[in-house]
Amino acid sequence: DWREIAKLAEEALKKQQPVTVNGQTFNDPNEIKKLLETAQKAI
């Protein structure tokens, strides 16, 4: 669910920690931002 992904990505950016989505881990803040943008577009 994109809403859940957006929430996870936002928290990861705030806490500056990696986030795992669908078994894929994102460590890079730039990648997390991209993930968040993608999720927000999909909602």
Rank of each mutant, 00 (worst) to 15 (best):
R3M: 14
K7R: 13
A39L: 06
Q16I: 07
Q17P: 05
L35C: 03
A12N: 01
A39Y: 03
A6S: 04
A39C: 03
R3Q: 15
A39G: 02
K14H: 13
F26A: 01
W2D: 03
Q24D: 05
K41H: 12
T25E: 05
N30S: 13
E37F: 05
K15A: 07
E10N: 09
D28V: 04
Q24G: 05
E31R: 04
A9Q: 01
K34F: 10
A42W: 15
E31K: 06
T38R: 13
R3K: 15
A12H: 01
K33L: 12
K14E: 11
A9N: 00
Q17R: 07
A9P: 00
D1M: 14
E37C: 07
Q40T: 09
K14S: 10
F26K: 02
Q16P: 04
K34H: 10
L35G: 01
I43P: 04
E37G: 03
K33V: 11
V21L: 09
K34P: 01
P29Y: 13
E10A: 07
A42I: 15
K7C: 10
W2A: 04
P29N: 06
A6N: 03
A6Q: 08
Q17A: 09
K34W: 09
K15I: 07
G23F: 04
I5D: 02
T38L: 15
A12F: 02
Q16D: 12
T20G: 02
K34R: 08
K7D: 07
F26R: 02
V19C: 10
L13I: 11
I32R: 00
V21E: 00
E4K: 09
L13Y: 04
T20M: 08
E11N: 08
P29D: 05
E11T: 07
F26E: 03
T38G: 06
A9D: 02
K14G: 07
D28G: 10
I43D: 05
L35I: 09
F26P: 00
E10K: 08
Q17F: 12
K34Q: 11
Q24V: 15
E37L: 12
G23I: 01
F26Y: 13
Q16R: 14
F26N: 01
W2F: 06
K15R: 11
W2T: 02
E37R: 06
N30T: 12
T25W: 10
A9T: 06
A6W: 11
L13W: 04
N22M: 14
Q16A: 12
K14W: 09
K33P: 00
V19H: 01
E31C: 04
K14M: 14
A12D: 01
V21F: 10
N30I: 12
E37A: 08
K41E: 13
E4I: 09
A42K: 12
A39H: 02
L36I: 07
L13V: 05
A9V: 12
T20V: 10
Q40G: 03
A42L: 15
I5S: 00
L13K: 01
V19E: 01
T25V: 13
A12K: 00
E37I: 10
P29E: 10
Q16Y: 10
P29K: 09
I32T: 01
L35N: 00
K7H: 10
D28K: 09
A12L: 03
K7W: 13
K7A: 06
T20E: 07
N27L: 12
Q17E: 11
Q16L: 06
D28M: 05
W2C: 04
K41P: 02
D28C: 06
T38V: 13
F26W: 08
P18V: 05
T25Y: 13
A12G: 12
V21Y: 10
Q40R: 11
A6E: 09
L35V: 04
F26G: 00
N22F: 14
